[in-house]
Amino acid sequence: MAPSATILEGQSDNNKKYGGLGKSSDGRTFSVRSYPKFETPEEERKYRKEHLAAAFRVFADHGFVEGITGHISVRDPLLPDHFWLNPISVHFAHLKTSDLVLVNPKGEVVIGERPIQPAAFAIHAELLKARPDINSAAHAHSIYGKTYSAFGCKLEMITQDSLRFYKQHTVYKNFGGIVFNRDEGIRIAQALGDNKAVILQNHGILTVGKTPDEAAWWFLALENLCQVQLLADAAAAGSGKEKIIIDDETAVYTNGQNGTSEKGWLAFQTYYDDVLIRSKGDFLL
């Protein structure tokens, strides 16, 4: 089965965003993958659901599964105040598009046969309501994100990759137990602000994006960076060496290269292709 067909012709502007290396030695111009254009909202709904299902498979591959915790959402293009979410009873490694449930603003399942997590609804409903510029949010109890959240502080800008989150992540410090109350979802949304990620103190990490691809990729990236931060902190404490913080000018420039929404979407496509090939597309059913 071929990978996701999202390579569009004539993407000269897109090529420039990725370093301008879009030509061969004999003058041919190559296209860079970009988010596809759709003829109808129904087509985009299908695409969003397929990539949401793929995101769960990728999370399973990375071990972001712990019992019934964890959830990823995507806004419905036909009913923008509704969103698709994973049900409470399906393991990420086996989730298919047909398992996804459509939830309305009241938390009622409009399409689907299984219940959802109350905490998932409380968080995602308020995030998507507060941020009309995003369509997806991702949260799981990953090991390094959960561990680093215990410190209640932001990442230090110590690597090129950390600059993806330069002035684009924050911390929610008011941990109050499992999020069953929508007021808690409102507070998390307020803490997130206009950022792409929030570290939930004593809880874990949460990321958002225009697509489930982007939200999932920022989660993967943030989880890795939490591991890097923990290792760097431990090494610094053990060796007495000081970490070198990247200066603001370099951070701004680099974030413009590796921290854009387009880059987040693009980075996920290799994971999508891998899941598609290995599963023979069974998550599309």
Rank of each mutant, 00 (worst) to 15 (best):
V103L: 04
P105M: 13
E108P: 00
I111C: 09
R114Y: 13
R114V: 06
P115G: 08
I116Y: 01
I116Q: 03
A119Y: 08
A120Q: 01
I123F: 04
H124L: 11
A125R: 02
E126M: 13
R131A: 12
P132R: 01
I134G: 08
S136P: 00
A137M: 05
A138Y: 01
A138C: 15
H141C: 08
H141Q: 03
S142H: 04
I143E: 13
G145M: 02
T147D: 12
T147H: 04
A150H: 04
F151M: 12
F151T: 07
G152Y: 12
C153V: 15
K154L: 07
M157P: 04
I158F: 11
T159F: 10
S162T: 15
S162E: 13
S162W: 03
S162A: 15
R164I: 09
F165Q: 05
Y166P: 05
Y166R: 01
Q168C: 07
Q168V: 02
Q168P: 00
Q168L: 06
H169Q: 14
Y172T: 04
F175P: 05
G176M: 03
V179N: 05
N181Y: 14
N181V: 09
D183Q: 07
E184M: 01
E184L: 03
G185C: 12
I186D: 08
I188T: 08
Q190E: 15
G193E: 14
K196L: 10
A197Q: 02
A197M: 08
A197C: 11
I199K: 01
Q201K: 13
N202V: 09
G204T: 02
G204A: 09
